[in-house]
């Protein structure tokens, strides 16, 4: 337990000292608000069920952060720590491997939560974005979405031969998913074909779950999303347990 807490604290410090990861987790989404807000504003639109473009971007960009942390960040992070021999050094200690992963997951969840808070702060200051849900439910959705995206990231890290390959695989998966899942651009303005494709992308379900709960929906209305995300988590978790390598 003491090891878990200390490792989490150390990981958080290391995270904050890494400019690239700080940019993608904390600054990228607020920048999108500034950019797309200037282009589309936040006037209520029937297309978005009476909400403005920035209103619905809040949960969508939160999903975007989860996806980028999980699919871009984790594979690079784990891949390079493994390549350098850091994981090997941890493995010589009595620390349980599960403790290591848990600390890593908590670190990434805390950073994502910080990213979401910053995002909402910027959205609220610039466009007085609406929030009609319950904070705890949204955080619950953030954790579930995070766990499923992160488990996907650990699986990539486990399967990729090196840090470089992990980075490339992460990008190849993440960037199309960012545009096709509704995380980067609302699905409402996408053609029918794209919406069909989006049904097969895990990130789409993170967007739908977060958006539903954000605007006052209940868990009961999102059983499909919950089932898909739990499924991804269980599948990737099991495969990670099988393929994860410390060296």
């Amino acid at each position: 337990m003491r090891g878990l807490i200390r490792l989490t604290i150390t990981n958080l410090k290391l995270y904050i000292r890494e400019p690239v990861s700080v940019f993608f987790t904390l600054a990228f989404a607020p920048l999108l608000v500034v950019l797309f807000g200037a282009m589309y504003g936040n006037d209520p639109s029937p297309l978005f069920g009476g909400y403005g473009s920035m209103d619905i971007s809040m949960p969508a960009y939160t999903a975007l952060i989860l996806g980028s942390v999980g699919i871009l960040g984790i594979p690079i992070q784990v891949g390079s720590l493994r390549e350098q021999g850091v994981l090997r050094r941890y493995r010589t200690t009595p620390m349980n491997p599960l403790t290591y992963i848990t600390a890593d997951v908590i670190t990434n969840l805390i950073m994502t939560l910080l990213g979401m808070i910053l995002l909402v702060l910027v959205g609220w200051l610039l466009y007085s974005v609406q929030f009609e849900g319950q904070v705890l439910k949204v955080i619950g959705a953030l954790i579930l979405g995070g766990l499923s995206m992160f488990s996907f990231g650990y699986l990539i890290a486990g399967l990729a031969p090196g840090a470089r390959a992990a980075q490339v695989i992460g990008m190849v998966i993440f960037y199309p998913m960012m545009f096709l899942s509704g995380a980067g651009i609302p699905l409402e303005i996408m053609p029918e074909t794209v919406r069909k494709i989006s049904d097969f992308l895990p990130l789409t379900y993170v967007v739908k779950l977060l958006r539903g709960l954000w605007f006052g929906g209940s868990w009961g209305e999102h059983l499909l999303e919950v089932a898909v995300l739990v499924g991804v988590l269980v599948l990737c978790g099991a495969l990670t347990a099988r393929f994860f390598r410390w060296e």
Binding site: L14, G85, V86, R88, R89
Partner: peptide
């Protein structure tokens, strides 16, 4: 106590 032939720590620790 173990000192490995090859290992490292995170660069910024």
């Amino acid at each position: 106590g173990i000192q490995l032939q090859q290992s490292a720590l995170p660069a910024r620790i």
